[in-house]
């Protein structure tokens, strides 16, 4: 049984295996939409390597975190935008 991490995504509790990226965690929780573009279109991760900036979410109140480059830590609060 993999070591699981517990965190909050838009206020909902979620558990993912240790080492999972925040982007993957959000997608695991059933949300393909991580944020909205400047014109309000739904967006999700694209490049997976921290270059396109489409995967940005707010983590523990800090905006513009690239979720594909950030590993989940226990207890973090993620907000999609």
């Amino acid at each position: 049984m993999p070591d699981m991490i517990h965190l909050l995504i838009d206020g909902e509790p979620c558990s993912v295996p240790r080492g999972t990226s925040i982007a993957a965690a959000i997608m695991i929780s059933g949300k393909p939409v991580l944020r909205h573009s400047v014109a309000g279109e739904p967006r999700g991760p694209v490049c997976g390597m921290g270059i396109c900036f489409e995967c940005r979410v707010t983590v523990n109140g800090v905006p513009h975190i690239r979720s594909c480059m950030t590993t989940c830590e226990p207890g973090i609060e993620i907000r999609t935008t």
């Binding site: 080492g19 999972t20 990226s21 993957a24 694209v46 490049c47 997976g48």
Partner: peptide
């Protein structure tokens, strides 16, 4: 997503 992009997402837990 990208081709390498999906690979990266899967490797990091998707």
């Amino acid at each position: 997503v990208g081709v390498g992009g999906l690979q990266a997402l899967v490797k990091t837990g998707l």
